[in-house]
């Protein structure tokens, strides 16, 4: 217990934008270490920089300065194809707006990352069906995203994120477009996957329901880490915090 294995580390991570002549510090010298297998929530109001942090950790955007290490490898040193490999095999992404490919069925969406990873069609279909069953959508494999509810679309997205057995799941406001009950279901599903598959879950969110399942909560404000709390320290507050935003 004394020594943790860190899967993600950021050092001096900063991202500046110039908006109308003024420099906006979306992220300002963020140092964050995430342990293998833990469930981390990055909490903060909108505009606090949590989505920027999400993009940096996921290799979707380049930092202005500082570094992101995934398993001690500096992400900035990777070539384009190595980065693609990382995104394909090692990181699973979940988005607020689900981001399924609209012309594809649920099963095709789930199997697409497996196609990129070089799986044969049969293997991909088998595994895709299995994943859809895991998220409770085995029956609806042939439906297009427009024929699915928001919660169902997010379940497909979760199944897709797990397609290539990633080590890290990155979720950006996964419950942001869902109602209270569906949101809870999605959180439970993520927690269940986190425990069963030992995958590290990093979720940027301002949904307080998420605190309940998180091992640690990182509070971020104005591009800086305000505080990091362990689950055991916030247990007491959760009762009071269970009000619903919006």
């Amino acid at each position: 217990m004394s020594v943790y294995e860190y899967i993600v580390r950021t050092k001096d991570l900063s991202k500046f934008y110039t908006l109308g002549g003024t420099e906006v510090r979306a992220l300002d010298d963020v140092a964050l270490d995430i342990r293998r297998g833990e469930y981390v929530s990055i909490m903060g109001p909108s505009g606090s920089g949590k989505s920027t942090l999400f993009n940096m950790i996921g290799g979707l955007d380049k930092p202005t300065k500082g570094t992101v290490f995934i398993d001690e490898v500096d992400m900035a040193q990777l070539t384009a194809s190595e980065l693609a490999f990382l995104r394909c095999r090692k990181i699973g992404y979940i988005f607020q707006t689900f981001n399924l490919i609209p012309v594809m069925t649920a099963l095709e969406n789930v199997t697409l990352p497996m196609v990129f990873a070089g799986l044969t069609t049969d293997d991909a279909l088998d595994k895709g069906m299995q994943l859809l069953k895991t998220v409770g959508l085995g029956e609806r494999y042939d439906h297009k995203p427009t024929e699915l509810s928001g919660g169902q679309q997010q379940r497909v997205a979760i199944a897709r994120a797990f397609a290539n057995d990633p080590a890290i799941i990155l979720a950006d406001e996964p419950t942001g477009n869902l109602d209270l009950r569906t949101g809870k279901e999605i959180i439970t599903l993520l927690k269940q996957m986190n425990e069963e598959k030992k995958v590290t879950v990093i979720s940027a969110t301002h949904d307080l329901k998420m605190i309940d399942v998180s091992d640690r909560v990182v509070w971020i404000r104005d591009g800086k880490i305000e505080r990091i709390e362990d689950r055991k320290d916030i247990d007491l507050q959760v009762g009071q915090m269970e009000y619903e935003e919006e």
Binding site: G58, L60, A80, S81, A84, F85, R87, C88, R89, Y93, F95, N99, L100, I101, P102, L112, P113, F116, A117, R160, A163, N164
Partner: peptide
């Protein structure tokens, strides 16, 4: 859609 595909590993 293109952004999503890239997240899934598309070159």
């Amino acid at each position: 859609e293109i952004g999503t595909m890239k997240c899934l590993g598309a070159l």
